[in-house]
């Protein structure tokens, strides 16, 4: 079953007076439960593709379908609902809310979903335990290391059982050991919870972890390799 389908997607940005074609006729399909890395040099269009798949930005032309929802037929409010209930995000810069504790950051998505406080707290603690942050529930982001913050971000992304998690260079700010630990956690979540993971990266280690590697160069799909186990 297809989780993501991009059909002839085009996206152009304006940088000053110059138009930059970030994506050119990109078409791809990703099945449910895949663990995919989108790789390519800086400026190749990886982040743009992730933003489009996450509904954070809109295409100039082409069609994107995520979990059966066609974006071009959805309002901003419907897209927000989709992001809230079906999509988890992990950002390169962690992007945690600085005034909330680790547990509160994880709870926040469930709060938006309207879950009761007790259930939120239980699930947040359980998922933080899963990502190796036992006993650090009440720490604020500033009191956590980069690796720990990114684990909180992963916990936040998967706590509400999304269909898909989009991670934009999740290990870019981490040392290799911490990055490897994080990838193991995400792979475990992928295997146990059957959540589809899509990463953008130019890190060789991340590429090695992925079961499928999509290469993008100058906004075009350059290669698509599925590794055999």
């Amino acid at each position: 079953m297809k989780m993501v389908e991009c059909i002839e997607v085009n996206k152009t940005y304006q940088q000053g007076q110059v138009n930059v074609r970030a994506l050119k006729d990109v078409s791809l399909a990703i099945a449910t439960g895949e663990f995919v890395a989108i790789a390519g040099p800086s400026g190749s269009g990886k982040t743009t593709l992730l933003n489009l798949i996450g509904g954070l930005d809109s295409v100039d032309s082409g069609t994107i379908v995520v979990d059966g929802h066609r974006f071009d037929q959805m309002s901003q409010s419907q897209l927000a609902d989709l992001r809230l209930n079906r999509v988890g995000f992990v950002f390169q810069a962690y992007n945690l809310i600085p005034v909330l504790s680790a547990a509160e950051n994880v709870e926040f998505v469930m709060l938006l979903q309207g879950l009761p406080a007790k259930e939120r707290r239980q699930r947040a603690k359980a998922i933080l335990d899963d990502v190796g942050l036992e006993g650090k529930y009440e720490r604020r982001p500033a009191e956590l290391s980069g690796g720990q913050q990114q684990r909180v971000a992963v916990a936040r992304a998967i706590v509400s059982n999304p269909s898909i998690v989009l991670a934009d260079e999740p290990t870019a700010n981490l040392d290799s050991k911490t990055g490897k630990g994080l990838l193991q956690i995400m792979k475990k979540m992928n295997e146990e919870k059957k959540i589809t993971f899509i990463f953008s990266t130019h890190d060789k280690m991340v590429m090695n972890y992925a079961r499928r590697l999509i290469l993008i160069r100058d906004g075009c799909l350059a290669d698509d390799q599925v590794k055999s186990n």
């Binding site: 954070l56 927000a80 609902d81 809230l84 999509v87 995000f89 992007n95 809310i97 926040f108 938006l112």
Partner: peptide, 16 residues
């Protein structure tokens, strides 16, 4: 600004 971008990415609607 970044934080509001994050909130929107997480699924917060403009009204929220």
């Amino acid at each position: 600004i970044r934080e509001f971008g994050l909130l929107k990415a997480l699924g917060m609607k403009p009204w929220w």
